[in-house]
């Protein structure tokens, strides 16, 4: 309890890291619900990895063209954002385009995207030894290094994502649940699909920059998978997913702070523990429920 009080104190030294954690925890599940419902879970693994490759690539280009990039400078952060966003959006739009041409090899394409992104990340790092140590930290996610400036940027981008998700919720639901009906109704399905993918790409690239691929992937999936067991309406599904993400990020932060653990893995572990607990409770409820006569 004393840890919670300390963490919530206005002058708490890691306040920015806490806010960044909770922001990622809230917004990632909001796009994660579409990953779960559209059965694009593998994409949730591949895109954060693509984002990481984009960061490594941007910094490598900087080194090759301009010169070494001292860690922590403004150009460092801008390059990382640019690289992460370009690779993630490019990857998701390319995969979406290929999906429209045929669903037969969707999983194989996403798997290959993950493998290629992982390999490229390592190759880009190897080609940029000067900044390797700094980049490795960046790729792991630098929640603890969040600054007020980076936090404002993160909040602005993720806030915009939430506003657009809420504004076009019915369009995103229609193209996700019954794509054919949307076409028959004359809706611009390509536009709505592309917009949803852009929102996913932005959330993932900024999530990876703030918290790393592991945390981003964890929060894309674990809260929606948990919320699915608790809700039966689409709106409450999204709200509960975001709430679970925010709360588990906060609890994970407190646990990591109290026991001096790595922040990102602690948050993912708490989120996974909640999923396991709720799954067990749901299984128990269904097992003990009287069977229909």
């Amino acid at each position: 309890m004393s840890t919670v009080v300390e963490v919530l104190t206005p002058g708490f030294i890691l306040r920015d890291a806490l806010v960044a954690s909770v922001l990622v925890g809230i917004v990632c599940p909001l796009v994660g619900v579409y990953f779960v419902l559209r059965r694009m879970i593998f994409l949730g693994v591949a895109l954060p990895q693509l984002s990481a490759a984009g960061i490594a690539f941007a910094l490598l280009v900087h080194r090759a063209v301009i010169g070494p990039h001292p860690h922590g400078e403004t150009t460092d952060a801008i390059l990382a954002r640019l690289g992460a966003t370009t690779f993630t959006l490019g990857g998701i739009l390319l995969l979406a385009l290929l999906e429209r041409r045929g669903r037969e090899f969707v999983e194989a394409r996403i798997g290959m995207a993950y493998a290629i992104a992982g390999a490229l990340t390592i190759l880009f790092l190897a080609a940029d030894p000067w900044g390797e140590a700094h980049i490795v930290n960046l790729l792991k996610g630098e929640l603890l290094a969040a600054t007020e400036k980076s936090l404002v940027f993160l909040a602005a981008v993720l806030g915009a994502v939430v506003v657009v998700l809420l504004a076009f919720q019915k369009e995103f639901l229609l193209v996700s649940f019954d794509h054919d009906l949307a076409v028959v109704f004359g809706k611009r399905t390509t536009v709505w699909d592309a917009l949803l993918y852009v929102l996913c790409g932005l959330t993932i690239s900024f999530g990876v920059l703030a918290a790393g691929p592991l945390v981003t992937f964890g929060f894309l999936l674990a809260p929606p998978l948990t919320a699915r067991l608790l809700t039966r309406r689409m709106l409450t599904f999204s709200i509960v997913s975001a709430a679970i993400g925010g709360v588990t990020a906060f609890v994970g932060f407190c646990v990591a702070f109290r026991y001096d653990m790595p922040l990102g893995p602690a948050e993912v572990a708490v989120s996974a523990a909640v999923l396991l607990l709720i799954s067990a409770a749901d299984w128990l409820r269904r097992t003990l429920a009287p069977s229909p006569a």
């Binding site: 779960v36 419902l37 019915k170 649940f177 019954d178 109704f185 039966r232 309406r233 689409m234």
Partner: peptide, 17 residues
Amino acid sequence: DPAFPLTVLEVVLMGTY
């Protein structure tokens, strides 16, 4: 897809979209 958490009314409302 039955994975979508939707009530009957929510599905019918999609027609009004």
